[in-house]
Design a protein around this nucleic acid. Structure first.
Lengths: 342, 342
DNA sequence: TTGTAGGCGTTATCAG
DNA sequence: CTGATAACGCCTACAA
């Protein structure tokens, strides 16, 4: 029976395991010829290094864990897609854990990730249980909160300013002349980002004399449809809808279409996210573009720098920007009310 | 300086590492009191097991790798979401690698996954380079192809029958009376699933006397919009559009809306996937529902059974079904042509 | 029920 | 430039 691993190669080449290890790690102090010899031996036996053994010896796993509510929402998927790409380029692996929408799972998932050997943890949002924070601290595990730009728990945050986003969005609408706007948003419990956006909207509305109708919904297209249905049948007296995420806006768009409510003539609609389809819809959606991909790259970069070079992890505030497309216009009298009756 | 790991606990409790290890692995042959003692000691020192060491000793990493083209397309994200959930319940971790849409990256990513210690590999589609297949075989690494239900490379497949899907879809359209339909599909190079669907469509069209117009596009909403634009301006003479994926159908829907082409009055539209929004659109999209989540669960289950119990990995064919909603109707004369002139 | 000791495949520290 | 050897933290016969 042949020996496995470096030992086998050592035997096969007549060299020592140390030398084998050196060529494995591209150490410079190896004779060119020796290296060739080892390399070809490796090819010959189809040698594959054992990551676990290496991890044990170096106490480096080159693995980073991320926990998100779900992969089924494209905003998280796009973010992780960017993270994965950047991490892969740096030789790190990404292992993903979902909470299945239940924040009470977060701590457990983080623990699993750590037990698995993750060298850093990527979290969603700024709010995390003390137990989770403790777990992180007790192993002093680097971690970063994403989709937000500040936290009150001491963890660095890489993301955007949700309150500012809400603020800018409502002001833009106000600047167009809207004074009665409905705000459709996802669940606020367990979602600090949504709460922050709402608070920004409220502040902006106060400044601009805009009267707000808040309307909660689930974070999916169906939620947008239901919310729109309610808006159109029970509220009516609004000139614009601000949807705090594009999936919800899509629902509003669909429901408006069904009711022959023309956007932006009868009603303006503004979203937030800038998803794949947002520029393509009819009409194209005016929305807040979130720097999702840049955020992913930035998170990956920060973590890798920290792990490889010991650089501190700084919070990063990425700018979001409103992209004007065709779904927002000046209000036209009681257009919606009229349209609803059509 | 305290000793780390099991050794430390052994010292702290006055027991041996073997006993510590036993409680760690919930072995039954350990005294209840002893167990308590160890457990509380573990809590006291905040013990965290070292996965690398365990992996090295047991040669089990409890990690499964998946490579997909991208996470940015919700069809993959939803699939992996299901995989992750099922795997997590079984105590396995999922590490994800993307090819960034370039099949030539696939082999490298698979190697990275294997080098990382993945115990099984999840692949997308049935087509894979010989180099990749060899790499898998030489380490006899279990792997499964997904989104397809058969392969010619010896690997098991868990998924649906793409040709049958295309076949059923076009026949349904034909049964509604459509004889001239445009098929909009994503890239065919490097995508066997799309090719299979097209072949099924062609066979069905032949059987039913349907004349087809094939129209390739990119696999996103924008692609659907462009294709629709071309269809509406240059082709015209069709009564239905069969979109081989829902994202593309969404583009068609948007473009039709922009041109005041009413679906399904002027034109029928049928999709494939059944995404989040498909039941909510205006009109709701008649589409082929792919068992994405079940597929994810099935893949996870098969792999886990194999790894834990040595059960063989069988190919699984999951049924897809057409879900009738509002976007397909009988053709009405030259409605589209008329509508285009409106 | 508990303890002892060897080994898992690499890395890294010394000498040579 | 190369070699011997001791960790790394855990598991698991085999003994007791």
């Amino acid at each position: 029976m042949k020996k496995t691993g470096v030992r086998g190669l050592a035997e096969a080449t007549g060299l020592s395991v140390a030398t084998i290890s050196r060529v494995l790690n591209n150490a410079d102090n190896v004779n060119q010829q020796t290296r060739e010899r080892v390399l070809s031996a490796m090819r010959a036996v189809g040698y594959a290094p054992n990551a676990a053994a290496r991890a044990l010896a170096t106490s480096r796993t080159k693995t980073i864990g991320a926990v998100v509510p779900t992969l089924a929402h494209s905003i998280f998927a796009r973010f992780l897609n960017a993270v994965e790409q950047a991490l892969a380029h740096e030789g790190y692996a990404l292992v993903i854990a979902t909470t299945e929408g239940r924040p009470e799972n977060e701590e457990r998932r983080v623990r699993e990730l750590m037990d698995l050997g993750a060298e850093a943890i990527i979290l969603s949002g700024a709010e995390h249980s003390d137990a989770l924070l403790d777990a992180l601290a007790s192993r002093n595990m680097p971690a970063v909160c994403t989709s937000v730009c500040e936290t009150s728990n001491g963890l660095p945050a890489i993301g955007y300013d949700n309150a500012a986003i809400g603020h800018a969005a409502i002001r833009r609408l106000a600047a167009c002349g809207h004074r009665r706007v409905a705000v459709v948003h996802g669940p606020v419990s367990d979602n600090d980002r949504t709460r922050l956006r709402i608070s920004g909207v409220e502040r902006g509305a106060g400044e601009m004399g805009v009267s707000l109708t808040l309307c909660g919904s689930t974070l999916d297209v169906e939620g947008g449809v239901s919310a729109a249905r309610q808006l159109f049948t029970e509220i009516g007296d609004i000139t614009a809808v601000l949807s705090l995420s594009d999936v919800i806006a899509l629902g509003v768009l669909f429901e408006a279409g069904r009711r022959r409510i023309t956007i932006p003539d009868d009603l303006s609609l503004m979203g937030c996210d800038d998803l794949d389809w947002s520029a393509q819809s009819a009409p194209p959606l005016t929305t807040v573009r979130l720097p999702t991909a840049r955020m992913g790259a930035s998170v990956a970069q920060s973590l890798v720098s920290y792990l490889d070079d010991g650089t501190g992890i700084e919070s990063v505030r990425l700018e979001a920007s409103i992209v004007e497309r065709g779904s927002v216009d000046r209000p036209r009298g009681h257009a919606l009310t009229a349209a609803s009756r059509r």
